[in-house]
């Protein structure tokens, strides 16, 4: 006799979904690892050192080196990119390309567990990327302060916020025609450029700062800078950053639960 254990499924089902995803990622471990190393190296060499030497000759930003200023933003940006990819593609595959979600759904696993499991797996992969990125930053001398490691949780916070929202969005997409173009060109790149990544957001005219306020990257960068050097952030501002990112996680996940359930229960 098999030992089907419903209670075990309701408790650990989410982790089993995540496990399946992680086994999938493991097949691509080489590429994931390579991207995690090459990505920061390219940025740090070109912008960090190239642009940095120019700015540092001008006394840096906020009284710290340009690399120190840039580090939390680059780290958060890498987290956002990694976590988005890791929810968008598996969601498209699960609903459409390979229909694996429908296979899971024929077992005691619920729609909610599928969506949460995907999210967790994405965060596991993002954590790996963030740690590798952080090590690269360290070797480039971008991490001077003793609290520099706190840039990692701040970056993961941004990654989680973006992944939750993207999970809900990707769950809604039935025809992917323009989806990837829109996400890439009209969400990811503008976010990277207008979130105070390369210069303080306050340098922008106020109507352009608006984009930053909507961006998880900006909120996480502000938190990251606050944690890693003497970057001045007021108490209410800090609260707002935490609040926005937390709200994105909560709303994104809640919406994804509903969207996944609706699509798997036709």
């Amino acid at each position: 006799m098999s030992t089907i254990n419903i209670r075990k499924v309701s408790r650990f089902g989410t982790l089993h979904v995540a496990e399946a995803r992680i086994r999938n990622m493991a097949k691509w471990a080489g590429i994931i690892f390579f991207a995690a190393v090459i990505n920061p190296t390219l940025y740090l060499v070109s912008i960090g050192i190239g642009v940095g030497s120019l700015i540092d000759a001008n006394k840096g930003v906020d009284g710290v080196s340009y690399l120190t200023f840039l580090a939390p933003a680059l780290l958060a940006s890498a987290a956002i990119q990694g976590s988005s990819d890791e929810v968008i593609f598996p969601t498209m595959a699960g609903f459409k390309w390979e229909r694996t979600f429908f296979g899971m759904r024929s077992t005691p696993i619920t729609a909610r567990q599928i969506s949460l499991g995907l999210f967790i797996a994405a965060m596991v992969r993002t954590s790996v990327s963030v740690v590798i990125y952080w090590i690269a930053l360290y070797y480039f001398g971008a991490l001077e302060s003793s609290t520099a490691w706190l840039a990692m949780p701040a970056a993961l916070f941004a990654g989680a916020a973006m992944a939750a929202v993207m999970l809900a969005l990707a769950g809604k997409i039935e025809k992917e025609d323009f989806f990837f173009t829109i996400v890439g060109r009209f969400i990811m790149i503008p976010m990277f450029l207008f979130s105070g990544t390369f210069y303080p957001l306050s340098q922008m005219p106020i109507f352009l700062q608006f984009f930053g306020w909507l961006s998880p990257l900006w909120h996480a960068t502000e938190i990251g800078r606050y944690l890693t050097y003497d970057y001045p952030v007021s108490g209410p501002a800090l609260f707002m950053h935490f609040f926005v990112l937390s709200a994105m996680i909560f709303i994104g996940l809640t919406a994804s639960f509903r969207i996944f359930a609706a699509r798997l229960e036709k």
């Binding site: 209670r7 075990k8 650990f12 399946a20 097949k27 694996t100 979600f101 296979g103």
Partner: peptide, 30 residues
């Protein structure tokens, strides 16, 4: 938990091996 379902369109995890597919599916039943 007590049904075996073979859908019209296969929905196997194509990146995983034959054994892994059975393994992860079994995990979904606890």
């Amino acid at each position: 938990a007590h049904l075996g379902v073979v859908p019209q369109q296969d929905n196997l995890d194509v990146e995983l091996t034959v054994s892994e597919n059975i393994f992860i599916y079994g995990r979904y039943f606890g």
